[in-house]
Design a protein around this nucleic acid. Structure first.
Lengths: 192, 192
DNA sequence: TGATAAACGGAGGCATCCTCCGTATAAATA
DNA sequence: TATTTATACGGAGGATGCCTCCGTTTATCA
């Protein structure tokens, strides 16, 4: 006799959890290298599981992609919380923005991925928009509170500006330009 | 004896030209409906030619897509020249911008298409950027010369703003919003 | 240590990609 | 106009990817 609700449930199987992790990790790699339309069979191969297992965990390409993307967004959120404990608030903000640029730069597929998100599932869109806006807000408020930057730029505008920087850049060697633009923008936020 | 250069060339075959046209037209339809990753075999079917013919004319998906996109850009260029002959220069500018919105709206695939261009062949990017900038410049200069709008907004900025409006919108029912934003922006350009 | 719910792998059917080459045909030539 | 020949045509076919289905395996629970 088990004392739980009507729906008595077994503990999830250990191999299931493990495979899910492996798939997520493999998908991050494969999508990063090949964009979000990369072969799902390649993902399964990379993870060392059967294609059926992939589809059981993530019934559609979008489901897998969303899980990967959510994970990346969460990592950026954690980075923001970590940076919020640094001394110099303006530098913390700058570092976070630069981390975004580097993330996109090292993962060539991420650019296309971002575009899919921009016009895909609005759940995911809402989630990541909120999460990223909060991250920026955290760092921004601290810098504003310290009296170091102007207070009339809301986090949303900063996020959109960041995305704009990604979009407007070409494919080759855009990272230095993007980093410079971020620098300029952060400097522009500073009070004179 | 033919009086031409070392490379004596026949006139291109009529069927070849015709098929190229048909493929372009079919691709415009198919890509518009299904986005740039739509089936190429569907394009060939729609055009009423064999798949081999498609590949002979356009060796890669990108080549076909580029041709389609160039054609659309050229049409917008021609529209600008036509509008430049209208009476009211500000209205002409507004109409051209609205035509852009409608073009993208009726062709759902165009949004993804634009994104491909943004990170694809830089030839195509340069070509379309220049062509569209010129179109805007044509209409803008006329309105400036008539003293109706401010003179400190270069065509490039206007183009980027337009693209930004496309990107920032969600998938559903964004056309009214985009048209409104265009309106606001054009009104903002007016001298008080 | 069995019973069994849950997860696993991958074969198989279908779609698309792209290449290759025998056939057809439009332009050139006589 | 008839013949030649460069050029283009169509589509079969091999490779790959998508996704489903189901017989087999295995982790949990008693």
């Amino acid at each position: 006799m088990r004392p739980e609700n009507a729906k008595t449930r077994r503990k999830p199987r250990a191999d299931s959890l493990r495979n899910r992790e492996r798939l997520l990790e493999a998908a991050t790699q494969i999508f990063s290298a090949g964009g979000p339309q990369a072969s799902l069979e390649a993902v399964a191969r990379q993870a060392g599981v059967g294609i059926g297992t992939l589809y059981r965990h993530f019934p559609t390409r979008e489901a897998l992609f969303e899980a990967v993307y959510r994970h990346e967004v969460d990592l950026l959120g954690e980075l923001a919380e970590q940076l919020a404990r640094e001394d110099d608030p303006v530098e913390a903000l700058r570092k976070w923005l630069q981390a975004n640029v580097r993330l996109v730069a090292t993962k060539k597929g991420m650019i296309e991925a971002l575009q899919l998100v921009a016009h895909g599932s609005s759940d995911l869109k809402a989630y990541s928009f909120e999460r990223l806006t909060n991250s920026i807000g955290l760092l921004l408020d601290r810098a504003v509170a310290a009296g170091e930057i102007r207070s009339d730029v809301p986090p949303e505008d900063l996020l959109r500006t960041l995305v704009g920087i990604f979009y407007s850049q070409g494919t080759t060697d855009w990272q230095p330009t993007a980093l410079r633009l971020v620098d300029v923008f952060v400097d522009g936020l500073r009070k004179r």
